[in-house]
Every structure is written in C-alpha cells, then in structure tokens.
Amino acid sequence: MRRSHALGLVGAACWDAWRLLASRIEDATGLLLLGAVAIGLWAAGRATRNAPIRVGRLAALLCLYAAATLTGPALLQIAAAMLAVVIVAVPEATRSLPRVPLLAAALLALPILPTMDFLLAYPLRRASAMLTVSLLQMNGLSVRLQGVALDWHGRLIQFDAPCSGVRMLWAALLLASIVSIAGRFSTARYALLLGTALAAAVTGNGVRAASLFYLETGLLTPGLPWAHEAIGIVAFAFIAAAVVGGSRWKARAW
C-alpha cells in the first residue's frame, strides 16, 4: 500500500483522537506547535507518498490505537494516533527527517503538561531542592532540607508545584528534539542530547531556586517587581545554551 493512501486511512480511523486533541488545545502555543509538526509530517509524506508500507505494520498500528481507545485515557489515545501518523509518514530510510526526534516532538506538542505535572512534579521538586540546598550551603548559608522545603533558621520555604521545573524540562526536551531534527541526529545522539537537556533543566531550576531564595528571605531586596521573572528568563537561557552547546559538542565527538 502506498503511504499516501495509508496516511488517509490512519487519519480517518483516528478521527476521534483528533476530536479529543482539538478539545484539549488551550492556547496559541499548543496550536503553533501542532501546526509545525503537521507541516513537517506533510513535507515527509509528500516526499515519500509513493513509497510502499507493509500492510501488517499498518494493521499493527491501528490495532494499537484501538487498544488505547478501549483501555486507556484520552491522552494515550491521542498519543497512539500520533505515533501511527509519524511512523506511516516517515519511513526508516528518510535521512532528511529523522523519525525518532520527530515523534518525540509530536508527542511533546500534545497537551501533556498536566500529566507531566502529576508524574514528575514531586521528583523534580526534590531534586531541585537538594541542589538548591547544596548551592546555598556552599555559599555559607545554614540551610537544611526537609522534604521539599528549605529550612532556614526555623523558617520553612516551600518548593511548590510551579517551582518544580516541569515546564522548564518540557521546553528543554522540546528544544533538544527540534535541534536533533534540524541536525539529522541519529537515535543514539538524540538520546544523549535528551540526557543533556534533563541535566540542564534540573541544574537550571536549582540555580533559579537558589537565586530566588535571597529574594524570599529578604537577604537581597532589589526593589524590582519583575525580579522573579527576570531570574526565570536567565535560568531558561542557561538551559537553552546548555542544550545547544551540548548538541554541538556531541556533533564533533560523534
């Protein structure tokens, strides 16, 4: 079967997933990301529309989608549909558009932040709090860790959910996927860049939290109402630079 016909079949078979996806898009960012993914898939599908695809593989993808529809939550159903579209659109032999980073970017473009918050918020809060305590102790401050809170002279400063760094991690993983697509990275190089993105996100959030500690405790009072936002922007700039720099270093090493 030609891939153009298979794509049409997958699109029609997964119509309920597209309906669910449309109902979960809450802002322009998600719409733009999905639009970019759609353009990339359209370009890949146009370049390989006459390439054949095994009927058995197509049937397996549709069975996987059916299983997700019957047994899984809506997000799993949407992810299974996106997986089927990417695998059908991008054959293994396509070097101009690596499939694994594209699939990851497509999944990250889905409305997965609430799920990431639920699954990763506490582990990331704990890791960032441990790093923050270490940084502050290195600076001579008597700070201890209690759970996900900083204990400073009997005062507990909580690491709440927005400070977990989940959104920083999501953005770092998405940036790593985009860089890998643009650089035509192999799966191994892409996996290494994902590790770099994870380490940079946790480190950057820890540095951000350590910087905010001085504002929260009154040790530093710059009198700037936008200080929190400025620190967050600087921290994300550090993360982005680490991801891009890591991709260049690995490009030379590999």
Rank of each mutant, 00 (worst) to 15 (best):
A105L: 13
L174S: 12
G45L: 03
M130Q: 15
P91C: 04
A79S: 14
R19T: 07
A66T: 14
R2S: 12
S180T: 09
Q77D: 03
Q77L: 05
A201F: 05
D16A: 15
A47I: 00
A237T: 01
R144A: 13
D151C: 04
A129I: 00
F213T: 12
I178Y: 00
T132V: 12
R189G: 15
Q158M: 08
G147W: 00
G223N: 09
W226E: 08
R126G: 10
I231R: 08
L103P: 11
G232S: 10
L70C: 13
R184C: 06
L107G: 11
L135F: 00
A161R: 13
E26F: 09
D16S: 14
A253Y: 02
R144S: 14
G165N: 01
L135W: 00
V148I: 05
M138H: 11
G206K: 05
S180G: 10
R46N: 08
T29L: 04
A84E: 11
P52N: 08
F159P: 10
P225L: 04
G204I: 01
A36W: 04
L192I: 03
A172C: 04
A93H: 09
T217V: 03
G218T: 09
G72D: 12
L150S: 08
A13G: 10
M1D: 03
A105D: 03
L173W: 15
L103M: 15
V143F: 04
R252V: 06
V37L: 09
G45N: 06
L70P: 07
T29V: 07
S247H: 09
L173A: 13
R208P: 15
R189C: 02
G218K: 12
F213S: 12
G40A: 14
Y122M: 13
W170G: 11
A253G: 02
G72L: 05
M168A: 12
A36C: 12
A105V: 06
I181H: 09
A197K: 03
P114G: 12
A240W: 02
V143K: 04
T69K: 06
G195H: 05
F238D: 02
G204Y: 00
A191E: 02
A104C: 13
G45H: 02
A191L: 15
W249S: 06
L7A: 02
S180E: 02
V243E: 01
A199E: 03
M82N: 11
N205R: 11
A84I: 08
R3S: 10
C14Y: 06
G165Q: 05
D16F: 12
I39S: 10
V243R: 03
L219E: 04
G218Q: 10
N139D: 14
G72K: 05
G183C: 13
L61H: 08
P162C: 06
A171L: 09
T71R: 02
